[in-house]
Amino acid sequence: MDELLKIKDEALSQIEEVSTLKELNDLRVFYLGKKGLMQAAMKSMKDMSKDERASFGQVSNKVKQEITQSIEEKKEALEEAEMNAQLLEEDIDITLPSNALPLGSLHPLSVVKNDLEELFLGMGYQVAEGPEVESDHFNFELMNLPQGHPARDMQDTFYIDEKTLMRTHTSPVQAHTLLAAKGKGPIKVICPGKTYRRDDDDATHSHQFMQCEGLVVDKNVTMADLKGTLEVFAKKMFGEKRKIRLRPSYFPFTEPSVEVDISCHNCEGKGCPMCKHTGWIEILGAGMVNPRVLEMCGFDSTVYQGFAFGIGLERVAMLKYGIDNIREFYNDDLRFLNQFTRKG
């Protein structure tokens, strides 16, 4: 009996001492193996009385159990320690540069175009397109700018031949859309696209630029609707606090015509260099579709009326992102483009 207890004490203390799984296994074999100490101790049982044997058996089982449990516990502890050591070994510098894939960017004018499209699609507008190489008829005549009209001076034009030109505005898409509708409303479109004027390129002029036309024609569309629609536009593009202001103006294809100002988003209307200290920024032209345009495009102007507006995308992008030179859009310097990898 004492022997058994001695074995147990020795075993437990040795188990306590080992530091590797192999040593632990050796101990297990040494004490619990077929040729182990416990097995040897059992051999003495055959010389014992029945009672003795019974109590010896009981004790030996208990000892075996204790040793086994101790080995198991130690094994778990050693395995965990081994894993921890491994983890320590696998340590890396998580601050080193990542393997991020290259980051591309949409051109800022595409971003503005997308934003506008989303806004107006949500209000039930379609996106209409038209050719950039356009006929004089669509670009001017149908927009109520007949030959010799003084306002043609305002739009110096790249002519290709007497009847063909690079479109000077996106307004001809109005005519394409109206004619396609064959005199029947409602019409609700925006027409973003490239336009061209015979301007020398400098910080504020570009011979190529982008516009977005808007056109709504139905039986009861009003100037108040125009104002409300443009207010939605101003808030979406420049923030919820924006207000708009209409000023009388002139475009041959609208009557009445207005210039639209938004309250300056840079200074909240207090006055800053961006708004030339007026608190207002001129942003677009608009008006009620000239009845002559409706008639020329097959709509009965006594039944239908509507509004139209024209937004300069460069102007919106310049104001929104604080870009002060229109040439930036067309130089495509990567140091410029790279700034538009993030969401706007």
């Binding site: 949500g122 039930g124 507008y125 039986k219 108040a224 609707d225 104002k227 629609t229 209409l246 009845p291």
Partner: peptide
């Protein structure tokens, strides 16, 4: 329409309310 403009500009565009078109639904899809 020209006379409407005369009235609008003299009456003041600031006095025009802001509304959204009240009309038949149209689909807005690309």
């Amino acid at each position: 329409a020209d006379l409407v403009e005369e009235v609008a500009r003299m009456y003041g565009y600031d006095n025009i309310p802001s509304t959204l078109p009240y009309m038949e639904m149209t689909k807005g899809i690309l």
